[in-house]
Simulated scan of single mutants.
Amino acid sequence: MTPEEKTVGDLINLLSACGPNAPVCQAVNPYFPMAHRLAQVLQSVDETGRTFVYLAEGRDPDAAQLGHLPPEAAIELTWQGPVQAPQRRPRRRVGGN
């Protein structure tokens, strides 16, 4: 197992700190952060005999993707830095200035 891999036990420990009634979503694609609804948990064995657990989104394209990941979540995941809105310039008036 690589250091980046989490085990089922790790996931249980992380989830135990969360509200038990909160929906579980999957954050995907750090360059275009989207949120996906989890629909399935599947255990399988790879070609080397290692057991893996897969968290999968549903098949219904209208229900699986929830939309953009909230900016706060993308920042917390370090997928993007905090961004401040640009300063507003005074509006131009008819006839100049």
Rank of each mutant, 00 (worst) to 15 (best):
T2I: 13
T2Y: 12
P3W: 03
E4K: 09
E4W: 08
E5L: 14
E5F: 13
E5H: 13
T7D: 04
V8W: 06
G9D: 15
G9V: 14
G9K: 14
D10N: 13
D10Y: 03
L11T: 05
L11P: 07
L11V: 09
L11W: 09
I12R: 09
I12V: 08
I12E: 04
L14K: 07
L14H: 06
L15A: 01
G19L: 00
G19V: 02
P20N: 03
P20M: 00
P20F: 00
P20E: 00
N21H: 02
N21L: 01
P23W: 01
C25I: 05
Q26W: 10
Q26C: 10
Q26Y: 13
Q26E: 10
Q26K: 10
A27E: 00
V28W: 08
V28G: 04
N29I: 09
P30S: 03
P30T: 02
P30F: 01
Y31L: 13
Y31R: 14
Y31A: 13
F32N: 14
P33I: 00
P33D: 00
A35C: 05
R37Y: 01
R37G: 00
A39P: 11
A39D: 14
Q40I: 10
Q40T: 13
Q40M: 12
V41N: 07
V41H: 07
L42K: 15
Q43N: 13
S44E: 15
S44L: 14
V45F: 04
D46E: 05
D46I: 06
E47F: 09
E47T: 11
E47H: 09
T48Y: 13
G49M: 05
G49A: 05
G49E: 06
T51L: 11
T51F: 11
F52K: 12
F52Y: 12
F52W: 15
F52T: 15
V53W: 02
V53R: 04
V53A: 03
Y54K: 15
L55G: 08
A56W: 07
E57L: 06
G58S: 06
R59F: 11
R59N: 14
D60N: 15
D60M: 09
D60K: 12
P61E: 02
D62E: 13
D62M: 08
A63Q: 15
A64E: 08
A64H: 08
G67M: 04
G67E: 06
H68F: 08
P70H: 02
P71H: 02
P71C: 02
E72T: 04
A73T: 10
A73G: 05
A73D: 02
A73W: 02
A74Y: 00
A74M: 03
I75M: 04
I75H: 04
I75Y: 04
E76F: 04
L77C: 03
W79A: 01
W79T: 02
W79R: 02
Q80Y: 02
Q80N: 06
G81F: 06
G81W: 04
G81P: 15
G81L: 11
P82Y: 09
P82K: 12
V83R: 12
Q84G: 09
Q84A: 10
Q84V: 10
A85Y: 06
A85E: 14
P86D: 05
P86I: 08
Q87Y: 11
R88V: 08
R89G: 06
P90E: 09
R91Q: 12
R91C: 08
R93I: 05
R93L: 11
V94Y: 12
G95I: 03
N97G: 14
N97L: 13
N97K: 15
N97H: 15
